[in-house]
Design a protein around this nucleic acid. Structure first.
Lengths: 143, 143
DNA sequence: TTTACTGCAAACCGTTTGCAGTTCC
DNA sequence: GGAACTGCAAACGGTTTGCAGTAAA
């Protein structure tokens, strides 16, 4: 299975239109976590007539196909879309500007919940989010 | 500083009205992560004329005072309010019904981000979320 | 008495949807 | 040719706000 979103989509029986291609290409790359509006803006650079509805429709399909993941970051009201569904990863977020990086911390497998704190639940996955300040935000706060 | 929200509020110069008291009391207890609508419903049992606007106004103030924290869980569109701001804690979430427990896993302090994955950021806090299925949801899926 | 909280209703934002028209396969 | 996609615009759910009235201190 190819590593790049657009290539994976080609392998599926997925109706390819100029709009959908533009949307998929907007999600190319690493550390990509765009909002729907940002995807629209990027797609419009290639296909100016794309509509926000199509962006939402397409993103919804990609999420359903598990080719894109929704990311909700505390402090931002809108959903972000992450094309990296092929690799387990976590996030590092700047609490100043909302910038998000994909990270692969060590020690995640050693996180343990005591039995009495499992409350009868079977744990399936663990999500780790590091929160900090990027250098740009750190400077603008201590000028 | 008292452990219970309503007692902490008494210590601050915080104008106490029946509505605000009802809202603060709705947030009493452990493992409490209510939505604004749920807070409204609980508050109405005590003060039937409370309005949703007042609930939002009050919750917003409590968050600004750092007496309540906003919690955004993937898969739920609405913000939840967590009165436990006095104790570092993490969350265990049922991906079936959205039930949330406060947890205190071991190993959090051993999570390490390699320098090249810090991208120049100073890390301030780490949030860990365990995702699983509660026993009720597990049963209803394997009937 | 004064300041600030309350409720209503309208506005707001991000997201979803129905539908008529168009396009890909 | 036909199923599936597109754009528009209207609807939606959650949240915020302006304002006139009311109540806490």
């Amino acid at each position: 299975v190819p590593d790049v979103l657009i290539d994976r989509l080609r392998e599926r029986a997925w109706r390819l239109t100029p709009q959908r291609r533009a949307i998929a290409e907007a999600l190319a790359g690493e550390h990509v976590h765009l909002t729907a509006e940002e995807v629209l803006a990027a797609a419009k650079r290639v296909v100016p007539e794309v509509s926000l509805a199509t962006v939402y429709n397409t993103l919804g399909e990609l999420v359903a196909m598990d080719e894109v993941a929704e990311v909700r970051i505390a402090g931002s009201s809108s959903v972000r879309y992450d094309p990296n569904t092929r690799q387990v990863h976590h996030h590092l977020v700047c609490r100043g500007c909302g910038l998000i990086f994909d990270v692969h911390p060590t020690g995640v497998d050693n996180l343990v919940l005591a039995r009495h704190e499992r409350f009868g639940m079977r744990v399936a996955t663990v999500q780790v989010t590091f929160v900090g300040l990027c250098s740009a935000c750190a400077e603008s706060r201590h000028p």
